[in-house]
């Protein structure tokens, strides 16, 4: 899986590349409009992470260029501009998703994975991790052939963990993923605990091995062998 990260802030570009590389992607970076344009013209990427404000031009111009040349690269816009207008314009121009800075890298990773799944037409919509099989189209989870009865939140939580397997995830990243950022955080943390407890129970009852590891009560990690 090849990704292109177009972001002019060097350290942020590096962080994204480091995190996504660790998740198993091949990452290339571009720091300005022209080098990004060159890369887009020459190579094909599974997903492009695109900042809108770039030295030398606008990210929306790059998006326009991609669409005019019938490129099928998935595009996720990351922007400091929180304006609804830019978001709508970006999505109308064919971007697949939109993330506002500052975002969690784990969230970015889930969004990228989702775009790539949607872009793949070979029907590979099932993610497997140990005993766990997640069908992302039907939104169902099976363990050793047993169907798990999960709530919407539990499903989202499990998918989030699976995509970010072997990574330490903070409670606030989980809360933002499940509820967005407009809810009272203190009470959300209790819900995370409750959801994770239920999820673990359902997995073990179905005969699976509980893969979620709690880290000192402040974070979580999904361990895969």
């Amino acid at each position: 899986m090849k990704l292109l990260i177009i972001e002019d802030e060097h350290t942020l570009n590096q962080s994204m590349a480091a995190f996504l590389t660790a998740s198993g992607y091949i990452c290339e970076s571009a720091m300005d409009f022209h080098s990004a344009l060159q890369k887009i013209e020459v190579y094909e990427y599974d997903c492009i992470i695109l900042d809108l404000m770039l030295p030398g031009g606008s990210g929306l111009e790059l998006l326009k260029h991609l669409k005019e040349n019938n490129k099928t690269d998935g595009v996720i816009i990351i922007s400091a501009k929180d304006s609804l207008h830019d978001k709508i314009e970006g999505l109308q121009m064919g971007a697949d998703d939109y993330l506002t800075k500052p975002f969690h890298l784990s969230e970015l990773s889930v969004r990228v994975a989702s775009i790539i799944r949607r872009k793949q037409f070979n029907g590979k919509s099932v993610i497997t991790l140990g005993d766990i099989e997640i069908d992302t189209v039907a939104q169902t989870v099976q363990i050793k052939g047993t169907m798990l009865e999960l709530t919407q939140k539990e499903y989202q939580l499990l998918l989030f963990f699976v995509i970010n397997k072997n990574r330490v995830i903070s409670k606030s990243a989980i809360a933002e993923h499940l509820w967005g950022d407009d809810m009272d955080m203190a009470s959300n943390f209790d819900f995370i605990y409750a959801h994770i407890k239920n999820l673990r129970k359902k997995i073990t009852v179905a005969g699976g091995e509980d893969p979620i590891k709690s880290l000192y009560g402040v974070g979580y990690k999904l361990q895969s062998s």
Partner: peptide
């Protein structure tokens, strides 16, 4: 927003 994004990504 960009420095905030940098700090957040680095902490992660």
């Amino acid at each position: 927003q960009t420095p905030l994004a940098v700090i957040r990504s680095k902490t992660e």
